[in-house]
């Protein structure tokens, strides 16, 4: 609308000591950025998936750790309590009780001394984000259960977190899968507090909320007791792509 006093370079022909009559470059930029922001909200899901695939392998090889600050393929940290709970390796114990032959408390060192399993799996959150090919290391939950000896009445597991609030559940059959870990390492480093360390559950084939962070107790029960989010309406059987009305590809 305004251009009689503009040349093709976008520069003003008429100057009045200030750029008021010059080309509205700034205004265009302002509006373009607002538009870009809007487009980013609409297409951000696809763009971030694409960036993760393209940039993920590059940032994974970056030794400086600086690229972990980029918003590409990052875990988002959720906690149902106000604070991130923390516990040192020395303080940590995992108590397993309920319908078991020998109730046992595992120290951090006890878990470390058991045969380890490493998995490379995508981590999919029910709210949409996904981190590709994450390395998890820990002890198979099945091995922990074998140590304590589940009795005939034991049908399900109830997990509690030392955040004092969070709970989760699995059936005994789900818990015995080889891709369910009591995890203590993430990407080759000891599991840090924000990721649920020192020890968390990692249920590879299910949405993230099933992988109870800051794992403190495992109780073997005779029926499934729905966990924290499941009382809020999430599916108890949280298979990736087959629950919660989502169609993500399996992890």
């Amino acid at each position: 609308m305004r251009p009689p006093h503009e040349d093709p370079e976008g520069e003003a022909v008429v100057g009045d000591g200030d750029a008021r009559r010059g080309a509205p470059v700034g205004r265009r930029l302002f509006l373009t950025l607002l538009g870009l922001g809007g487009a980013g909200v609409v297409f951000g899901r696809q763009v971030s998936d694409w960036m993760e695939r393209v940039l993920g392998p590059i940032t994974a090889r970056d030794g400086t750790g600086l690229s972990s600050l980029l918003p590409v393929g990052r875990f988002r940290i959720y906690s149902v309590t106000g604070d991130l709970p923390s516990r040192s390796h020395a303080q940590y114990t995992l108590k397993v009780h309920g319908k078991v032959a020998t109730p046992t408390s595992f120290s951090y060192a006890d878990l470390r001394s058991m045969p380890p399993t490493t998995l490379h799996k995508d981590f999919q959150c029910v709210t949409g984000w996904r981190v590709h090919s994450v390395e998890w290391k820990g002890v198979r939950l099945a091995d922990v259960l074998d140590r304590v000896g589940v009795t005939a009445e034991g049908k399900a597991l109830r997990f509690t977190s030392f955040d004092g609030e969070y709970t989760e559940s699995l059936t005994l059959e789900q818990a015995r899968r080889s891709d369910v870990l009591v995890a203590y390492e993430l990407e080759g480093d000891p599991l840090s507090g924000e990721h649920g360390g020192p020890v968390r559950l990692y249920v590879a084939p299910m949405y993230g909320y099933k992988s109870c962070k800051w794992l403190e107790t495992i109780e073997v029960t005779d029926h499934v007791v729905p966990g924290y989010w499941e009382r809020e309406g999430y599916d108890v059987d949280g298979w990736v792509g087959r629950s919660n009305g989502r169609d993500d590809s399996a992890t």
């Binding site: 922001g37 980013g40 909200v41 609409v42 297409f43 951000g44 899901r45 763009v47 971030s48 600050l69 980029l70 918003p71 988002r76 709210t127 949409g128 984000w129 989502r246």
Partner: peptide, 16 residues
């Protein structure tokens, strides 16, 4: 979910 993911995506990159 898509809009939430998109909003988070934009918020993160704009913050940078």
């Amino acid at each position: 979910d898509d809009v939430r993911t998109g909003a988070t995506f934009v918020h993160d990159w704009w913050a940078l």
